[in-house]
Design a binder for these strands. Sequence first.
DNA 1: TTCCATTTTGGCATTGAGTGCTATAAAGTC
DNA 2: GACTTTATAGCACTCAATGCCAAAATGGAA
Lengths: 231, 231
Amino acid sequence: MADSDTGGAEGVGAPAVRPPTDITRGRRPSTTREHIARQALDLFDRRGFDATTVDEIASAVGISRRTFFRYYDSKRDVVWGEFDAEMVRLRDQLMGAPRDEPMMEVLRRAVVATNRFGAGELDELRIRMGLISTVPALVAHSAVRYAEWCDVVADFVARRVGGSPKSLGPQTVARAALGAAMAAFACWARHDSDDLTGEVDRAFRLLATGFDEKPLRLWVTGDPQSSSSGS
Amino acid sequence: MADSDTGGAEGVGAPAVRPPTDITRGRRPSTTREHIARQALDLFDRRGFDATTVDEIASAVGISRRTFFRYYDSKRDVVWGEFDAEMVRLRDQLMGAPRDEPMMEVLRRAVVATNRFGAGELDELRIRMGLISTVPALVAHSAVRYAEWCDVVADFVARRVGGSPKSLGPQTVARAALGAAMAAFACWARHDSDDLTGEVDRAFRLLATGFDEKPLRLWVTGDPQSSSSGS
DNA sequence: TTCCATTTTGGCATTGAGTGCTATAAAGTC
DNA sequence: GACTTTATAGCACTCAATGCCAAAATGGAA
């Protein structure tokens, strides 16, 4: 009550910062999540994630340690950035697909679509993905951050094949799909394949064939050091 | 430098405890990993993982906090128990399979085989699996603990289809397979399906068909509460 | 201008995990 | 009994994360 509501069901990672409307009352925030993320990623990239303390990040941004934790719930969360927003897109993509399109095809196209990024974002994204797939603390945290992603996929699968989203079928599809996506991300972040969506597409095509060994063209693609082009 | 090495490349989870042979020199250990695990799991089960401090575990066992960390690298590692030993079995199963047997069939049988447990172990295993798949800190840690599992599978796949174990194909199979296994574990730990290997088998059969929607018999199995029969 | 409500910030204290160092206790050997 | 080996306990320390409260900053109202 006593609140000029305008919707604003957006404050997932930003607790009190970023009010729903642009009313400017009270003290203005001294920084932004984006600014903090840029400074932090720069430190992570140069000194390493574990070797960078929250105090150093806060000091680089020009805020106190306590304020840092008002913008991000943890040091790890900085690396994920605005990941939550992408989940809405994934759900829309999955639920908006025609019923007669095969399930795994919908899934593949949805994941590919939600992972298209502009050329300007790719450098920072590669740093993020590289950290997520190599630093143990972040590899660990990814399981928690991607849990909601799994829920979205499991809901979609449950609608298609029936049963509860918690039952074996939907859960297996969701977690296997997550594995495929993470494999694509990690491979893209490792070497310099500039084609992130291509890697995702290939991973999901492999998944949808049940990893059949016969179509070798699906297997010999993303291997930069061995295959010398051709074939 | 200045270090009398004796080999001993076995100390993964048990740093100084448990020497390779049974020579009894020096002070004898005052407890065992198993004893600590039992006490800790009991506390986790009753009070919750996060609400249980290492001090409480140590006090329950009758050792000091510092000694606890000589038996386990972290509080989370207690829940995994002797997980490392199973990895050797998995590798043996995978590498010992005949070349003409289909890859995904070998994988399914290997994972099923390494997850057979005696009736006496199932109660504790369910507690472990329940914690691993529900407590956020453990869900997170699972990504790190299962990384080696993924490496074993990726090595196996790379031998079959060629290329580096780090390339997209093997990585995708490995991570998707891990997802399938985790889904089976979680479903088994949730409800009271006493058939753990059955769940694993079903998950890997789904995976090997590329999650084809048509064979409905694969999808409608593990769904205890809903499924009022009829579509 | 002064007071007030609102919102962000910063400092302080606290908890808890995890690590390094050192002294001590227990066991066998000479 | 002296010596070596091994495990333990205790202490100090770092760092992430949280709760609490006072102070600062901003706009609006009296």
